[in-house]
Amino acid sequence: MAERSDEVKLLGMWASPFSRRIEIALTLKGVPYDFSEQDITNKSPLLLQLNPVHKMIPVLVHNGKPISESLVILEYIDDTWQNNPILPQDPYERAMARFWAKFVDEQICVTAMKVVGKIGEEREAVVEATRDLLMFLEKELVQKDFLGGESFGFVDIVATLVAFWLMRTEEIVGVKVVPVEKFPKIHRWVKNLMEINVIKKCIPPEDEHLSYIRARMEKLKFKAP
């Protein structure tokens, strides 16, 4: 458990992978925190005040000081509460962890999100582009239990976006973006994640989560021109 006794508050949203990754880190560190559920379609004055630049969740407030952007928050948590380290200690390995985390957010996430809004050949092209990017993670998992190596760490926390958001949407979208025959190591990695108590505690309940995703997709279809 964390030894510090500080005031910690997290502004987040229960179904957001970016918010959940902060909960995973805080739970792993044993840091008590207050959670403030935010409506991302009707942003609260508090959220706008604490994150006036991006106006997005998550926002971590530590002793009255706000920190935004999930990757920045994860590093802040690791620097502030040093038990159960998330990032590797070796400088090169730390750099590689940052590289893969940015790859997940800036490449895989951005590309995979386009699957929802596409149909026909356009969807097929986006699915293939997503698979091409996922293959880099597949290769990273050769002879590894986790993306961080032998133990669960920073990149694994970030990549839960793939395991519990992207892969859960497959049933709803009707496309196997991450088929087990093409990505056996990613599927093995997901099974390894599900054996970790912190993950079990911090990922959204599947049925409730899928219902939320379906509702969001219906709204997106309705708004599409």
Results as ranks from 00 to 15, higher is better:
Y33Q: 03
A129K: 15
L87P: 06
I73N: 01
P179G: 09
D105K: 07
D90C: 13
N63R: 05
S211F: 11
V116G: 06
K223S: 15
V177Y: 03
M217W: 12
F222M: 13
L74V: 06
I157Y: 09
F99W: 05
M217F: 15
N51H: 02
A125L: 12
S16E: 02
V61S: 01
L133P: 05
D156H: 10
I172Q: 07
R168S: 10
K191I: 09
I40D: 00
E171W: 08
A2D: 07
V53E: 06
S36T: 02
K9F: 01
V115T: 07
Q107Y: 13
M135H: 14
W14R: 10
I213F: 09
R188A: 15
S68M: 11
G117P: 03
I57D: 03
F152W: 02
I108D: 01
Q82H: 12
A2K: 09
E208G: 10
K55V: 04
Y33F: 11
Y92L: 12
Q107L: 12
N84Q: 06
L137T: 02
D6M: 14
S70Q: 02
R131T: 10
D207A: 12
V190H: 07
V162P: 02
G64Q: 10
E150W: 05
L147Q: 01
N51T: 00
S68C: 15
D156C: 11
K185T: 10
P88D: 07
E208L: 11
I22E: 00
S68L: 09
R216P: 03
N84S: 07
E138L: 15
E206I: 14
A25L: 00
G148A: 12
E106H: 04
H54I: 12
K102I: 07
L46A: 07
L137C: 08
G174A: 11
L166D: 02
H187T: 07
K201V: 07
K191A: 15
T27Q: 06
V53F: 06
W81M: 08
D78N: 12
V142Y: 14
K185I: 09
K55M: 06
V175K: 15
K221M: 13
E171L: 08
G64P: 01
S19Q: 03
K114R: 06
M56C: 15
Q143L: 15
P66V: 03
K43W: 00
G12R: 00
P52K: 08
E75C: 14
E208C: 08
A101I: 00
E93K: 15
F146E: 03
D90P: 11
I67P: 03
G64S: 13
K185G: 03
W14G: 05
V110L: 14
L134R: 00
K29N: 04
D34L: 12
T160D: 03
N42W: 01
L71F: 03
G174K: 08
P66T: 04
R94M: 13
H62R: 09
E3R: 09
P85W: 08
I199K: 02
Q49W: 01
K43M: 04
T111M: 09
K201S: 14
V178D: 00
L87K: 10
L134F: 01
V61N: 02
K185W: 13
K29G: 02
D132M: 15
E3S: 13
E23M: 05
D39V: 00
E181A: 15
D78Y: 11
F35H: 00
E124G: 14
R123F: 13
A224F: 15
Q38S: 05
V116A: 12
V178Y: 08
V31R: 02
C109R: 05
V110N: 09
